[in-house]
């Protein structure tokens, strides 16, 4: 029930943006269908790059832009629950977009086996989405400003794409590389990288929830 209301009050762009991007990439794949390599490339771009970026940007405004935050925080419940519930709703939207897209790809006859078996494939969008959502909600709460979180996520995303060669080669940065599965699915450090990013994502969300305890900062 509670989550249903969360969904309703999500400002329009929070639903329009995923839907719009979904449609755009569905069209692009349809046009590129003749060329199997390009179609697959586009599908990976949507799942592994576009969806996580969008999740990160939307997570930044999950809390700090809420017009009713004072009442939300005055309710007799732990403040971190607001954060977790909203991120869960957002993750649900992302998951829906990702899964629907894969069904669509199946119908179009586009092959994604390069990303692993159907279950492992989900990590391609889940891992970077979670990591970026954690980062952006933490930064947004630390700065008490949504744009700060979104901006940082955008910069990091761009940096990782531009310097992907360095990230993969570096003995430590490779564990923080967001796009391992979509770019280097057969890298030996793939499992460690995903585990590391998942753990980090969770840690960032926990930190963000902890920041929210000091409610007066957000009034």
């Amino acid at each position: 029930m509670n989550l249903l209301y969360h969904l309703r009050i999500y400002r329009r762009e929070h639903l329009a943006l995923p839907a719009g991007l979904w449609m755009l990439f569905a069209l692009m794949v349809a046009f590129a269908r003749m060329d199997d390599g390009r179609a697959c490339e586009m599908a990976c771009t949507f799942l592994g790059f576009v969806l996580p970026l969008m999740a990160g940007i939307l997570a930044a405004s999950a809390i700090v832009d809420d017009p009713v935050l004072e009442l939300q925080l005055a309710a007799p419940r732990a403040p971190w629950r607001i954060l977790v519930e909203r991120l869960a709703v957002l993750l649900g939207i992302v998951a829906l977009a990702a899964l629907a897209y894969q069904v669509y790809l199946g119908a179009m006859g586009i092959d994604l086996t390069g990303l692993g078996n159907p279950a492992a494939r989900q990590l391609a969008w889940l891992v970077p989405s979670l990591a970026l959502m954690g980062l952006s909600s933490l930064v947004a709460l630390a700065l008490v400003q949504g744009t700060g979180g979104a901006l940082l996520v955008g910069l990091l995303w761009l940096l990782q794409i531009l310097a992907r060669g360095w990230f993969v080669a570096s003995p430590w940065a490779r564990y923080l590389f967001l796009f391992m599965r979509v770019r280097y699915a057969d890298h030996p450090a793939l499992a460690a990288n995903e585990l590391c990013l998942l753990g980090l994502g969770m840690l960032l969300v926990i930190d963000a929830g902890w920041l929210l305890r000091k409610t007066e900062r957000y009034l």
Partner: peptide, 27 residues
């Protein structure tokens, strides 16, 4: 029960929906 000085509302909800939502939050 707390009525803040600067009261924000969710413009897309009806009065009944808004109260229902707040009631859920209040347990």
């Amino acid at each position: 029960g707390y009525l803040p000085q600067e009261l924000g509302l969710y413009p897309e909800l009806t009065a009944r929906q808004f109260l229902d939502y707040m009631a859920i939050l209040k347990g």
